[in-house]
Design a binder for these strands. Structure first.
Lengths: 151, 151
DNA sequence: CCCTGATGGTCAAGCGCCTTGACCATTGCG
DNA sequence: CGCAATGGTCAAGGCGCTTGACCATCAGGG
C-alpha cells in the first residue's frame, strides 16, 4: 500500500479521535458548569436513549454496547441521583420501565445546551455551511453499532 | 437559547462521537487482523508518540493525559510484548529512553494501514475531496489537549 | 561547591467501571 | 401445557486508572 495514502488515513483518524475527545470534554464541562456534577459522558448517552419514551435496562445495554449488568448499575446510579425512576412495564411483567424524572429532563436540556455551545464555537471557526456538511458526513460514518466508544 | 439550535449541536456531537467510536473499532479490528492482538487504541496513541524518536514515560503520560504511573504500566505491558525497549537516556541519568523495537515499528505500520483502510472506505462513501475538507476541519477542532479521550 | 527545589521514575494500595457466571421470573411460541 | 427465550438481579473478579509516598538525579542560586 502506498505510504502517503497511509499518512492521510492516519491524519484523519487522529483528527477524528482527538476532536471527539475535545467535544466530549467540552460537553462534560458545560454540563458541570450548569450545575449537574458527577456525570460522565456515558450518562449522556443513556439520557439520549431514555429521553423519548423511557426504556428497559436491556435496551439501554444494547444501545450503549455494554452488558446488562453494567447498564443496570448505571441506572442504579442515575436513580440514586434522582435523574431516572424505575416503574412497572406496561406490557411486560418481567421488565421495568426506566424513565427520566424532571431532574433528568433538566439535565438532558443542559447537555443539549452544552453540546450546542461546543458546536457553536466550532461553527464559528469553520463556518456554518461547512458545519452542515460535516455533520452529514459524520452521520454517514457513524451508522451501525452502539454509541458508546470502546477505547 | 433556541431549541432548534440545540438540536443541531446535539446531532453534530453525537455524529462526531459515534463516528470516532466506529473509527476506533475499525482500526482496532484491522490491527488485530494483521496479527497484532491484545492491543487497545491507547497503545496506538503511545506508538504514535514513541515512533519518531522514542520518549520518556513522563512525556508519554503527558501525551496521553494520564498519570505517569499509568504510562509506566502501559510501557511495562508493551515491553513484555516486545514492542518497546527501555534503555538509558543519553542526557539524563534519571530518565529512561523508551523506544520502539522492530516489532513495534511493524505494529505501527499495521495501525497506519488499518487507519488508511478505514479512512479509504469512508472516502469512497463521501468522496475524496470532502475527505480532505473533513480532515482539515477536524484538525482544527482537535487542537490542544491530550490525545486520549476521557470517557 | 553544596544545598534545595524540581523532575523522572517506581512501589503500594485502592477504586471505578466493566466483565463473566449463575440464577430467578415471566413470556410467548410450538 | 412445556420449554426455550428474554428481562432482570446477585455475586465475584479483573483491568486500567488514580492517589500517595518515596528514591535518584538534575539544575540553579547562595
Amino acid at each position: 500500500m502506498d505510504p502517503s495514502t497511509n499518512e492521510d488515513g492516519v491524519g484523519l483518524a487522529f483528527a477524528l479521535l482527538a476532536s471527539a475527545a475535545r467535544m466530549a470534554e467540552r460537553i462534560d464541562e458545560g454540563v458541570a458548569r450548569r450545575g449537574f456534577s458527577g456525570l460522565r459522558p456515558t450518562h449522556g448517552f443513556a439520557f439520549a436513549y431514555l429521553a423519548p419514551a423511557g426504556g428497559t435496562v436491556t435496551g439501554l445495554a444494547a444501545h450503549l454496547g455494554v452488558t446488562k449488568q453494567a447498564a443496570a448499575q448505571l441506572v442504579d446510579e442515575l436513580e440514586a441521583k434522582g435523574y431516572v425512576r424505575r416503574g412497572p412495564h406496561p406490557r411486560d411483567a418481567r421488565a421495568r420501565l426506566v424513565e427520566l424524572t424532571e431532574a433528568g429532563r433538566a439535565c438532558t436540556r443542559a447537555a443539549e445546551e452544552a453540546a450546542a455551545e461546543a458546536a457553536g464555537a466550532w461553527s464559528e471557526a469553520i463556518g456554518a455551511d461547512r458545519m452542515a456538511l460535516l455533520r452529514r458526513d459524520l452521520e454517514r460514518m457513524a451508522e451501525g453499532g452502539p454509541i458508546r466508544p470502546t477505547w
